[in-house]
Amino acid sequence: MRSDNSKISVIFKDLKFSKKEIELIESVFHKATYKKGTVLLKAGDIVNNQYYIYDGCLRSYHIDTHGKEHTVQFGVNDWWISDYTAFFSSSKSIMNIEVLSDAILYRLSKKDKEYLYAQIPQIESFFRRKLERAFAAFQKRILSNLSQTATEQYMNFIQKYPNIERSVKNYHIASYLGITTESLSRIRKDLSSQ
């Protein structure tokens, strides 16, 4: 685990800040630790925060009207997670966020984020670039779901999340891929026999 003293340099890689800016950033990022199994956000909650994952593994998921879970995102070290639809539109959450392994997170409120934008313009550029990359990744994922076989999607998944299978259950991966756990087992068996 990394030292807490380096949190600003870990979160904002390649950015340089003055001592005053570092103090400002530290004043609005709030550290919290969560145990495996904690539900960080439930559908219907008001979403005022996004979270930087310093250590741990989380997932965001939606439960449809039939009670079926659809995993939208896994969050691992150095990723951000929230219900972004609700966060950006000031509406109630449609997602749930669950802690899959003990986690250290840094919480940033929408209000504090806007304040940082005004005080330290390079942070606004940093988050814009993050959003651009996230949007591109979600678009790739949609195209993958529409055009690739389940095996190809699984191969992409293990390339994107190489060590995640130690932290998540098979049904989490299956719900992320939009397949059954039986299909996932079949895919793994086929791949291991090649």
Rank of each mutant, 00 (worst) to 15 (best):
Y61V: 04
Y115C: 05
W79M: 13
S101I: 03
L108I: 14
Y106F: 15
I63A: 06
Y61L: 10
R107D: 06
V76F: 05
F87Y: 15
D102W: 00
S109G: 07
S90D: 14
S90L: 14
G75L: 01
S90G: 12
V99I: 15
W79D: 09
Y106T: 06
I81C: 07
V72M: 08
S90A: 15
F87V: 00
S91P: 04
S109D: 08
T71P: 00
T71M: 03
M95E: 06
L105I: 15
E98C: 02
K68D: 05
K113F: 11
S82F: 04
Y84C: 04
F74H: 06
A86F: 11
H70R: 00
K110I: 01
D78M: 09
D64I: 00
Q73A: 10
S101Q: 13
Q73I: 09
E114S: 12
H70A: 04
V76E: 06
S91R: 14
K113V: 04
D112S: 15
I81S: 02
Y115L: 14
S93Q: 01
R107T: 07
S91G: 13
T71Y: 01
L105Q: 11
G75W: 10
Y115E: 14
Y106D: 00
H70M: 04
L116C: 05
E69P: 03
I63W: 06
N96P: 01
S82L: 09
F88V: 08
W80D: 01
H62V: 09
R107M: 12
D78E: 15
G67R: 01
H70P: 07
S91M: 08
S60P: 03
K111S: 08
A86S: 15
R59E: 12
H70I: 05
A86V: 05
R59M: 12
S91I: 13
W80A: 10
N77M: 04
K110P: 11
E98A: 05
K110A: 13
M95K: 11
A86P: 02
L100M: 12
L105T: 07
R59D: 09
T85R: 13
D78T: 14
D83S: 07
F74E: 00
K111H: 05
V76N: 06
E114V: 11
F88D: 08
K111M: 09
A86K: 02
I81N: 05
S93E: 10
V72F: 09
I63P: 04
L105S: 09
G67D: 10
D83Y: 04
S93M: 08
T65Y: 05
F87H: 10
A86G: 10
G67C: 02
L116Y: 11
R59G: 08
H66A: 09
F74W: 04
K92F: 01
